[in-house]
Design a protein around this nucleic acid. Structure first.
Length: 407
DNA sequence: TCTGGGGTCCTCTCCCTA
DNA sequence: TCTGTAGGGAGAGGACCC
């Protein structure tokens, strides 16, 4: 596979030959991950515009760089993407492939250092301080990773090398596609101050707007604004957070395991619906997905959150905290259904419903008290049987009768 | 232009309790 | 018993990220 030769001469002069002493945090990001994986199935499309996404109301999941030249980007509505890039081949996503390739990539990372913190399927932070003596400088390790990912998984990635997570992430973005960028520790502040405020982690449209109202356009502007002004304009947490980042201060360490805080499932209907019976069935399906994922991870949650999005895109949530944690489909469904019924919607047109489980803890240690008269063999055992059948015959092989297709 | 799905974190408000 | 207050938990919504 032919690969680009590293680094970015246009990124301000930092690159492979710079001093990477103390730059032991790597951020590795796959290039156009979903699209690249699809090209493994369809090598005939290499070098052409490809958009991965689908559904009548879907958005772009990923696009090749050839499609991006037309202005297509992730999260863009599919209808708009097709208009912008008529020659693009549109492919439906294959999530099981992405999970498989991602697992392979993470294995490569873990063969270099145990300190791997995945952020999603296609990116991770690595702390390579313990591997330097064995494998060479952080930059050399970054190159080694890029070579191995390309050789073993057939896709390219970009690597940022820096002294903090935040700067490493910015660096990998600057190295894209298929490159590596080092930001030497001594150059961190100069690197940051040249960037627009949107580059900071946590600055989206709204925050950028608020910063604009304060007359702040660059990271340097934020750095030189009194902390009290930022806190007044943006709130305590955001103000302090942005001020610290603007000076390159980011004390977060790379953590090999970050506990999950919530698990959920949501679905946009192909068309808006107003039939409560249909919504109840959908809630059962979503509760089942949520509960089975919680059980698969050995987790149970105490708070059930219902999410409802109306046809005009306004979104509300309602939640209830239970007396005990649960991972039982029927309990989650009953709670979500109660919350939905309590809204007393008079056939309002709905676009989406979702179910989420929060307040997660290890289900093995979560206290569970049998209620008076409760059967010892009930829904929990039924869920266990469904999980076993799913593991043997495939997910969804056993499901509630109400979810069977209607004739 | 017409907006997915899975998450995390922050802020504000309300209520309960000490 | 009433009032003021402070703190914590829960609930709701919003912004943001990939």
């Amino acid at each position: 596979m032919s690969r680009r030769q590293l680094v970015r001469p246009d990124a301000g002069g930092w690159g492979l030959d710079d001093d990477d002493t103390g730059c032991t945090v790597l951020h590795v990001d796959m290039d156009a991950f979903y699209a690249s994986v699809e090209l493994l199935r369809r090598p005939d499309l290499a070098g052409t515009p490809v958009i991965v996404g689908g559904g009548e109301r879907g958005v772009v999941l990923s696009a090749t760089y050839e499609a991006r030249r037309y202005g297509v980007h992730a999260a863009m509505p599919m209808a708009r993407a097709r208009r912008l890039c008529p020659p693009a081949t549109v492919l439906v996503p294959h999530h099981e492939d992405y999970a498989r390739i991602s697992a392979g990539v993470m294995e490569v990372f873990r063969s270099v250092t145990p300190l791997v913190e995945p952020l999603s399927l296609d990116e991770a932070f690595l702390d390579v301080s313990g591997a330097v003596r064995r494998l060479g400088s952080p930059t050399r390790i970054g190159e080694l990773l890029r070579d191995r990912v390309a050789d073993e998984q057939g896709i390219t990635c970009s690597v940022g090398v820096a002294s903090t997570k935040f700067v490493a992430k910015l660096a990998s973005g600057g190295a894209k596609p298929d490159g590596l960028l080092v930001v030497p520790h001594a150059q961190t502040v100069a690197f940051l101050h040249a960037l627009p405020v949107e580059a900071l982690w946590g600055v989206g449209d709204r925050t950028a707007e608020a910063l604009g109202r304060l007359g702040l356009r660059t990271v340097a502007d934020i750095a030189h604004t009194p902390l009290t002004t930022l806190v007044r304009g943006l709130g305590e947490a955001t103000g302090r957070h942005l001020h610290a980042l603007a000076w390159g201060r980011d004390a977060r360490r790379v953590l090999a395991s970050v506990p999950e805080r919530s698990i959920g499932a949501e679905e946009t209907f192909p068309r808006d619906v107003d039939d409560p019976r249909y919504v109840h069935r959908e809630l059962l399906r979503l509760a089942g997905r949520t509960a089975s994922r919680a059980r698969a991870q050995g987790l149970a949650g105490r708070t059930v959150v219902l999410k409802v999005r109306f046809a005009d895109f306004t979104t509300i949530t309602r939640s209830r905290t239970l007396r005990e944690r649960t991972d039982v489909t029927q309990e989650i469904h009953a709670t979500a259904r109660d919350l939905f019924d309590a809204l007393a919607l008079d056939r309002a047109r709905l676009r989406l419903v979702g179910v989420r489980l929060e307040g997660l803890a290890d289900s093995a240690t979560a206290p569970r008290q049998l209620l008076l008269g409760e059967r010892t063999h009930g829904w929990r055992e039924a869920d266990g049987a469904v999980d076993r059948a799913g593991a043997r015959f495939g997910a969804g092989s056993v499901r509630p009768a109400t979810l069977l297709p209607r004739r």
